[in-house]
């Protein structure tokens, strides 16, 4: 630690590169907590949006119009409006209604900014996941489903054992793209003061006036985060690969 700090002090004194997160414990803690917050936002939104996608895609293929219609509206709404406006809508419009009295009799928000960010990002990415899974499901040949039916599989069994495993494989590449976008979109949480990576970096540069350095660090951090996600998706895709099957 000592030598690391000496190095960053030297970098600053002899080259004018001021990376305070290298030698200043306070800044580093702030930066790392921002990074952690971004990871939490990403992981939670990814998991929930996958759930939304699976359920949404299933509902879109349902017989009942009553089920298909709301999902269609949901997808259209979240696909065709800016995610930042969606976030503002949740946080300011819905957030101002959903308030409760605390013990001291003060009106406080029921849902934290962090939770709103997760909800908003989940729905935004979930709408796209719904479409991605839906097209994956539609790409499963009808004749394969008919074979399952002829073997006595029920609709649900066919869905679980045949449709989903194939649809997932077909969907993975587009899913990866969407999830990478989701990680990048977590920066929007900055707008409602969730102390994520961009927020903490901005705090640091406005105090230390090292905008250039922190910008660089910020971009590199996102490249790293996305690289980790891409690596995980690649592993997943490889583990699901079927010999001789062309998707």
């Amino acid at each position: 630690m000592e030598t690391v700090e000496t190095f960053f002090q030297w970098l600053r004194q002899s080259h004018g590169i001021n990376l305070t997160i290298g030698y200043d414990a306070w800044d580093r803690a702030q930066f790392l907590s921002g990074l952690w917050m971004t990871v939490k936002l990403s992981v939670l939104s990814i998991l929930f949006s996958l759930l939304v996608g699976v359920v949404g895609a299933w509902a879109q293929g349902a017989q009942s119009r009553l089920l298909r219609l709301p999902v269609g509206l949901f997808v259209t709404f979240f696909r065709n409006t800016p995610p930042l406006v969606q976030l503002y809508f949740f946080f300011f419009a819905l957030g101002s209604i959903l308030r409760v009295q605390n013990d001291a009799g003060m009106s406080v928000p029921m849902i934290s900014a962090f939770s709103w960010a997760v909800i908003s990002l989940t729905l935004f990415a979930g709408a796209l996941n719904t479409e991605i899974f839906r097209s994956g499901i539609d790409a499963v040949p009808k004749s394969t489903l008919e074979a399952a039916e002829a073997l006595g599989f029920t609709r649900l069994q066919t869905y679980i054992y045949v449709v989903l495993p194939l649809a997932l494989r077909i969907s993975l590449p587009s899913l990866g793209t969407n999830l990478v976008n989701l990680v990048k979109t977590t920066t929007l949480a900055y707008a409602i003061a969730v102390p994520e990576l961009l927020y903490s970096a901005a705090q640091i540069w406005s105090e230390q006036l090292n905008v250039r350095e922190m910008m660089t660090i910020l971009l590199l951090s996102y490249i790293l985060l996305v690289a980790v996600l891409v690596w995980i998706m690649g592993r997943w895709e490889r583990s699901l690969r079927i010999p001789g099957y062309g998707v």
């Binding site: 040949p141 004749s143 394969t144 008919e146 074979a147 399952a148 039916e149 002829a150 073997l151 006595g152 029920t154 054992y161 045949v162 495993p165 194939l166 494989r169 079927i242 099957y245």
Partner: peptide, 21 residues
């Protein structure tokens, strides 16, 4: 009872329709 019927009847298709996974 569709299941009972399908237990009695096996079917093979022109395009094989195996489960590729």
């Amino acid at each position: 009872d569709k299941l009972a019927l399908r237990k009695k009847i096996g079917m093979v298709f022109q395009q094989y329709n195996l489960f590729p996974h």
